[in-house]
Write a protein that binds this DNA or RNA. Structure first.
Lengths: 144, 144
DNA sequence: GTTAATACCTACTAATTCTATAGAGATTTA
DNA sequence: TAAATCTCTATAGAATTAGTAGGTATTAAC
């Protein structure tokens, strides 16, 4: 399951991507639009900024904006930042491989091939699904 | 990520499926073979029995055995019992659908289509991966 | 029948993670 | 200078996870 943080983050990013006004959006505005607790969202946006998915402007009339086009931010990018690897086990992760603590060696682990196949399947979907794609699904007409 | 419980469970089931001796296997034997803490594994096997993936024999010379052929027990079956739905959000689950607490309606949720697609992808892999398949991968020669 | 080996059950604990909240500091515009 | 904003640290309560302890019920072997 996704954490609440990832869900708020995805909603916030889709909101930013679909927003018409130029310039950055303040946390308060984003929190309201994505129905997230303001202070909690603060920490989430900050983390997304550290990981270069967002950029920020400080000071009055500051706020957050996407660091790159929405078509180049995938669901996988966001989830990896906030929830860690997509894989079902560390040993099945491509982006954060680590041998499992209690398992035998990777070649001897009877579950390993299945977990790798599952990771590949979910990664293929989420890496191919951009924030832009999600925006278009919500408001296909406005996009034309 | 999978819980430790699911990992122990998968290893235990693969062990049971690959075991030559007739009759049920005692918890102690299974725990040793799958490198799991005995008392912890007890609770796991009991849950798998309640959910009819294992059957048990009580009393002296009792133990656990698979409730059906290993070819008919999928990784998805086991993970669902111990970790819950495969989906990344309740609203994306087919086997345990539930609307999300903090999300808008399903049709308005910008993340929903991606999460459903991810669920379908991982479910396809894990429902198609049986315990038997895992046994064959570990010991392809003995299986002949 | 007694004993010993086993599954079954309840309760508990320690550590970790998750979901926030509080409040102060740094920065910039008006 | 004031106000609005991002940034940072610290904290707290709830939930989950991983594992332990200790007893009860059942059955086969002797």
């Amino acid at each position: 399951m996704l954490s609440q943080r990832s869900r708020y983050a995805l909603r916030a990013l889709v909101y930013l991507a679909g927003r018409a006004e130029p310039g950055p959006a303040a946390i308060g505005e984003i929190a309201e639009a994505s129905a997230a607790p303001r202070k909690f969202l603060e920490a989430i946006l900050l983390e997304l900024k550290r990981r270069q998915i967002l950029v920020s402007v400080r000071g009055r009339s500051g706020g957050y904006a996407l660091a790159r086009p929405a078509s180049e931010i995938s669901f996988a990018d966001v989830i990896r930042v906030l929830d860690g690897p997509l894989a079902l086990a560390p040993c099945a992760s491509k982006t954060a491989y680590r041998p499992c603590d209690t398992c035998p060696t990777v070649t001897d682990c009877p579950a390993h091939p299945a977990l790798v196949a599952a990771r590949d399947a979910v990664a293929a979907v989420l890496e191919g699904w951009s924030i832009e794609k999600a925006v278009l699904a919500v408001s296909p007409l406005e996009a034309l």
